[in-house]
Amino acid sequence: MTYDIVFVVASALAIISALGVILSGNPFHSALALIGNLVALAALYLLLQSDFLAAAQVIVYAGAVMIMFLFVIAYLGGRATEPVRARPWWQTLAALAAAVAVVVEVGFAIEEQAFGDGASVSEAFGAPQAIAASFLGRYVLTFEATSVLLLIAAVGGVTLAAHRPAPREEGAVSAFEIERPAPEVSLQAEVVDALTRFDVVRAGQVRDEDGET
């Protein structure tokens, strides 16, 4: 009974937040809805006796991955008032085709699996020990290859984003090397020039008979 209530609530939240992801015009709201979806899925994992998977889902996907999404959107994304941009027609068509394909596939999966007896699993199913045994035992090669793949992606990202200083031209002078007159000297000269109606005589200037310099 309690499980049924949790299942209905979590599934409803998952569907509503999934709709929120695609229907919201604001990328920040979409990303927030996606977080809600991932958390609702974690609740469903809990019902499937996968405590570890549920916690990992929240830490990795709802936590680490999505916070990066939100971070970038908050930095670069528009405000709530930004108008929705029109999409090209082929994008709509492709999205529809992909959606229909997923629905058909899920339909087949449900028809084959869902209405039979529930799978029988042992107590240890989904425990950290069982997951560790499959990651670091049977599938150790795949697991390590995946981490190398992620490392390559990270290094690639750093390389692409790394700030390379522009090559220095021959004879270029850095801003620090240019000697300028002290700021108060030039300021004083300007102020004195601008505000006095009298002739300004600077040291080194010679005044001729007519009063012209």
């Binding site: 974690a42 425990a127 950290p128």
Partner: peptide, 17 residues
Amino acid sequence: PSVALLVVFALGSISFY
């Protein structure tokens, strides 16, 4: 829960939001 420590971290990452 058997994964209580992970639950603590999961809630921690939710609080960032």
